[in-house]
């Protein structure tokens, strides 16, 4: 099984849409994909076509076995588990992550975890082959946060694969292209690709769908395909 954790370096970087689109892109190349929402906002369903008034999720059940009835499947075949309303305080996200491995077809399935921005990477049960993507935007705040995070990772000695992924990149902005060039040239752990800013991603959410389905002609489609391809190559490196 391949586990990808996606977390915003701060709130509002577009993490959930990255997860939804990435899941869809992986699914398009006939991979089995599970999306687990670990974010109390519980909004992954909105990207994947779940009804607005559906409130239940794994946090409303006492254990994984009973929560598994909340697995939904969207039109493309992505299986996802929403967070829910958090009514059952006993369940914890670590249990969920650990239990995922028990799913019957989990051997070469992809697990995408939509992680909330406020819980740090260290708190997740991460294996060496797990990939942790930290979503950033090209701005000064992210710049400072990233360097802090780098120091932190260095001190704590991370064993997993950690990458920073640029989202909503707009090359028309001088600041953004300068920052990106700076990061590309000197930042370790910087993913060699970025997601362009594209209205299609926002619009797709308004249709309770993902950009890959709504706007296959858009650059977002290519960006997520590239991201998926890159992740596949990372994961294959792990196996070999």
């Amino acid at each position: 099984m391949k586990k990808i954790f996606v977390k915003g370096i701060k709130g509002g970087t577009g993490t959930t849409s990255v997860v939804a689109n990435l899941a869809c892109a992986l699914r398009k190349s006939h991979e089995t994909v599970y999306v687990i929402d670990l974010d109390p906002k519980s909004d992954i369903g909105l990207h994947l076509g779940l009804a607005w008034d559906h409130l239940l999720g794994w946090s409303d059940y006492a254990d994984f076995a009973s929560a598994s009835e909340q697995f939904h499947q969207d039109n493309d075949g992505v299986t996802f588990l929403p967070y829910g309303s958090g009514s059952n305080t006993k369940s914890s996200f670590k249990d969920i992550i650990n239990h995922c491995q028990q799913l019957h077809d989990s051997d070469d399935a992809w697990f995408l975890f939509d992680c909330p921005a406020h819980i740090n990477a260290l708190e997740y049960p991460l294996d060496p082959e797990d990939i942790f993507l930290e979503v950033i935007n090209c701005d000064a705040i992210c710049h400072s946060l990233m360097y802090k995070q780098l120091n932190f990772l260095k001190q704590s000695g991370s064993s997993w694969q950690h990458y920073f992924l640029t989202n909503r990149f707009n090359s028309a902005s001088e600041l953004e292209s300068d920052l990106l060039q700076l990061w590309q040239s000197e930042l370790p752990l910087f993913a060699p690709l970025y997601i362009n800013k594209d209205e299609a991603i926002m619009e797709a959410t308004a249709f309770r769908n993902v950009a890959i389905n709504c706007a296959p002609y858009s650059v977002a489609n290519d960006d997520f395909e590239t991201l998926a391809g890159w992740l596949v190559s990372r994961a294959n490196n792990n196996e070999s």
Binding site: N196, D198, E199, A200, S218, V219
Partner: peptide
Amino acid sequence: AAIRLANGHTIK
């Protein structure tokens, strides 16, 4: 290449 229209759409 790509173009970004005034409405924010980025088309390949």
